[in-house]
Design a protein around this nucleic acid. Structure first.
Ligand code: MN
Ligand code: MN
Ligand code: MN
Ligand code: MN
Lengths: 220, 220
DNA sequence: AAATAATTTTAGACAAAACTAAAAAAATAA
DNA sequence: TTATTTTTTTAGTTTTGTCTAAAATTATTT
């Protein structure tokens, strides 16, 4: 596996995440995600195409090639292992780990990452509940759904949270919701799309639609 | 404290180490140390002078300012803490840690480093025996001397090793010499400058001049 | 279908960090 | 004290990654 610059890696990772949602990624989307300008994106897309990491025809949007996806999974593996390390070993809080991991992920020494993985006990998910690819780039693609799509009176486990701000963390901590919490949706209100949920035998409480949209669960 | 590029940091750290030995550092010396060209060094010296990290007049050599020294100690703190982490927690061997720390040292997040320090139990020295600056940039400047300068029949503790190759590591392991080992020089031979040393009550054994020159001890 | 708007690409410029080759200054030898 | 050698700096390029402004293409309205 070749080595890529910090800038190239940031583009590759962003494309990987965006194409999960959209299939093919557009110039403006990516520029917006990376807080850069469309012209810069086009420049980089040409470079990544030459390196065979990207399928790209002018004006047609882009997708990573198989090789590009492999590279992306390597970066995501590093990012999430460092996030786990920061939260678990250095006692960083949930909303602080992403920013630091954004830098650490670019130190790409295979032995370092594999030994870190071992030291951490081969964790399966990062502090936000997202799965960590293994040393071969394999990742558990669990069919997680948004809390808003859950059927009434079924129990599901909170698996991840898409917003990673300190504001959502404050709210989740107050409501005692964390990765792994078992939730049951008791009611949905059409007026504001709020819902009432229960944790175990405790009394039901209300969750706003904004919050529910950022909570993802594993239904079985 | 401002932020500096990876390249700037590598120059700052190299100047710091070279001026420890020489007082003032020359263009060729630094180019040689960083495996770059003299012209590149001159360019960077101008930049560091503008940033007030360096005292530099054309053709006169250079020294770090107080501010420059502070920045250097920050980089060295990061480098040595990561080296300790790699050796102690990830079980890297002695000769592998430097290369990896060379990259990790440039992730400069104060909170990350201070929490890492705490997680590691505030280690005093890195795996090569070199002192780790504290959060305020203070460093223990122990008056260590080279093994070749030790008086006969006095005992001293091995405090650091200047060469960090796997070859010297192999030899030191074979001779059971490590950081902290108590050594007593019994004889010196003028012919080849080799010496006979003892560890505790074990029989004396021979050390070549090349090896002795790379071993530093703390004499009391 | 033509006009208008939005998106994307190109062209040209710039800053950082490196290099080579030539000029300038300092150190050393004759 | 000249002449020669060594060291250092300057001048001019190159590569990477960014930007603005203008042109080209595609999408949306009227
Ligand atoms: Mn990043
Ligand atoms: Mn995460
Ligand atoms: Mn470095
Ligand atoms: Mn060291």
């Amino acid at each position: 596996m070749l080595n890529y610059s910090t800038s190239e890696e940031n583009y590759i990772k962003a494309i990987f995440h965006l194409q999960r949602q959209d299939g093919t990624v557009t110039t403006n989307e990516l520029a917006n995600e990376l807080k850069t300008k469309p012209a810069s994106v086009t420049d980089m897309m040409k470079k990544l195409k030459v390196k065979k990491l990207l399928n790209y025809q002018p004006y047609q949007g882009f997708r990573l090639t198989n090789e590009g996806n492999k590279v992306a999974l390597g970066i995501i593996r590093r990012h999430r292992l460092w996030e786990y390390f920061l939260a678990e070993k250095l006692k960083f809080s949930w909303d602080e780990v992403h920013e630091v991991a954004e830098d650490l992920e670019h130190v790409s020494n295979k032995k370092l990452i594999d030994k870190l993985d071992e030291f951490l006990g081969f964790p399966r998910t990062d502090p936000h509940g997202d799965p960590i690819p293994d040393a071969n780039g394999r990742i558990e693609m669990s069919k997680k759904i948004c809390l808003t799509e859950m059927e009434l009176n079924t129990i599901a486990i909170v698996s991840s949270v898409s917003d990673q701000s300190s504001e959502i963390l404050e709210l989740l901590e107050h409501k005692k919701i964390a990765i792994g919490t078992k939730l049951e949706v008791k009611k949905k209100f059409d007026f504001d799309n709020s819902m009432e949920v229960k944790i175990g035998r405790q009394p039901a409480f209300t969750i706003s639609n904004q919050l529910a949209e950022n909570i993802f669960v594993l239904s079985n």
